[in-house]
Design a binder for these strands. Structure first.
Lengths: 192, 192
DNA sequence: TGATATTGGTTGAGTACTCAACTGAAGAAC
DNA sequence: GTTCTTCAGTTGAGTACTCAACCAATATCA
């Protein structure tokens, strides 16, 4: 019944871990700070707006939005409440399930997102991509996916795709968003 | 006077960015959750204890501890106050600068750290290192250092080393910590 | 049909973090 | 010395997140 011997980190692992901690900490501080100053909302809220902007009808069921933005239901509920106060998001009853709520991006929210995106993307690029070679970008992606695959409890890419598809069914009826000029047309540029 | 054209992310960059966001989010949630359940304090507090445990005399000036744990002065002040309530850290007046405070790890704090370390390190290993090849670990470290070097406003490794050295001068007089059996003896294993 | 479990989402309390304002000591300028 | 500036650290207000408790609607199943 001996305790399994702790597998301590090697010196290399330790240095990698600390570099990772420091880098991510300062990276997120920089990303969040810029968004907070520019828009008054934190990065997590921006992510919500982006996910909505990419959804059919600019709308998603709460639980699916939660998954898509890697957020707990509680956190999302609080966040959407704040965004609703700002007039950037609206809550609507889901017609197919009376328990459900659908969050929809308003025109004002859409405009705010459009206004904030260039500076945010520029910041992401400055802080991260300008510092990395294309090979490193590919490596980082592979590393991230390996970590995600390794049981860390979060939405897989597949699950996210699924819920976007599912939500169309429910959100389709409601949508009347500003569909033209939608940045969602090129869904790969808002940098979540 | 034309706006510089926004350098939008390419599809590859976008995918890397989102994978990175999702992976770090779930990784930190897992790390923090485990520590919170096991010790009742968040990962940031654990980092503070680790830095103290590695410092000469188990003590550091507040500002240097702040740099070493990539924390703002305000955040550190709040955190140390909480740790002091728990009896894990003590605040002492700095003998060479009457403005200064020195935070010192108490025996109870040391014991708490010692008790928490194995499970924490195991968690870091499970979530991260078990998922990555040695090459990927090296890559991640290089990537992290590149991001850090690229102007993200945070303490460089050199600055941290400096402040550990400086603090010895001030903390030396006070120290009477549990120096034997100190995990700081092998400073590469507590996984910050 | 009616009892139970599950799902979708909200709420409130507690905690941590950020920002700006502040105190008091140390250095610098003169 | 006396003033001015900077530095070290704390404080309080405001905000976001977590957890657990909760309500209401839907499935499940006898």
């Amino acid at each position: 019944m001996a305790e399994p011997e702790t597998r301590w980190l090697t010196a290399d692992e330790q240095q990698a871990w600390r570099a990772f901690l420091t880098a991510t900490h300062s990276l997120f501080a920089a990303i969040d700070g810029q968004l907070q100053r520019a828009t008054g909302v934190p990065h997590g809220y921006y992510e919500i707006l982006v996910r909505l902007s990419e959804a059919p009808g600019l709308a998603l069921r709460m639980s699916q939005l939660a998954e898509a933005s890697t957020s707990s239901k509680s956190r999302l509920s609080h966040a959407v409440a704040r965004l609703e106060e700002r007039g950037w998001v609206e809550r609507l009853d889901c017609p197919t399930d009376r328990r459900g709520q659908v969050a929809q991006l308003t025109p004002a929210g859409f405009a705010a997102l459009e206004a904030a995106a260039p500076a945010h993307v520029e910041q992401v690029r400055r802080i991260m991509f300008d510092q990395l070679s294309p090979e490193q970008v590919a490596q980082l992606r592979a590393i991230s996916e390996a970590i995600l695959a390794g049981g860390a409890p979060a939405a897989s890419a597949g699950a996210v795709a699924d819920c976007l598809a599912e939500s169309a069914e429910c959100a389709g009826d409601l949508a009347e968003g500003p569909d033209e000029e939608c940045p969602g047309q090129d869904p790969a540029n808002l940098a979540g």
